[in-house]
Amino acid sequence: MATKAKSAAKPRLGPKKLIELYRSMLRIRRVEETLTEVFSAGEIPGFLHVCLGQEAAPAAVCSQLKVADYVGTTHRGHGHALAKGVDLKRFMAELLGRSDGFCLGRSGSMHLADASRGVLGANGIVGAGIPIAAGAALAAAKKYPGRVAVAFFGDGATSQGAFYETLNMASLWKLPLILVCENNGWAEFTPQQVHMPGEDVVDKAAPFGVATASVPNDVLQIYQAAGQALKRARAGGGPTLLEVKCDRWHGHYVGDAQKYRGSEAVETAMAEDCLASFEAQLKKDKVLTKAQANKIDKQIQAEIAEALEFARSSPPPQAEALMEGLYV
């Protein structure tokens, strides 16, 4: 896994916001757990990349975004879309390849997009979403001042030329862009020491004059750093590269036996649980009771069950729709 970042400042948040963050993280966790089961049961075709263990960054960043702000995400993008507020029913329908999905069942998990929530689109090409988000930031700067774009990506994507090229242009043009690198220590099946020298993605921004912050997988520290980045971007101060040092629990995709990794490393990764530690902190601070946590969990489980039911009963896309909408 990525090395630990130094502890950063934490924001002073009221109980309502803290519970909202907790709820957002738990919702991502439960959705990903459910999807893992549903995928393993053969109900979801293709590939599925889940973000279990990486719920903090999507919740912390997206909870500070407005509906009209843009988010570009990745093949591991469920958490970002959910935290940005996409409708869970249509989300599930898309993952099951049904006609009620946001993308009419054409995108599946890996290309999920919901323009109505500013979710530009997940991307099957590692790193490709970074310049696209920069383009959204350019449109924001020219047409919708105050609006921002966020690009989520992993450490693997920071070896793509498009990452450096975008850092360069975003800095030159002071784009309202927040580059959020969830540094989970893996480029697909390749560990970090094999795919990049050093351990800190923020170091890669040094030549470009881009503001940086590196924080551990702690929702409040991410919240604080993202808040500063957003403030800077909305005020016309240009881009920020925000690195979150996290870890990946489930391999590259669901079903990846992670033989290249060893069970001990997986256990170590899973012991670092951003949700469990946040929950413990909230309980310790008496912001969240056990009963409240159970209630939230039940609500989420019910919402997921309902969304899954909706998706299962949504008709598959009809063959007649195959040629529709290729061109305007």
Binding site: I132, G135, A136
Partner: peptide
């Protein structure tokens, strides 16, 4: 800059967002 890869991606994103 001489960055066809990124400025073309950027243009695609900008086009999707109203430019």
């Amino acid at each position: 800059p001489i960055s066809e890869s990124a400025f073309m991606g950027l243009a695609a994103g900008a086009a999707a967002c109203g430019l």
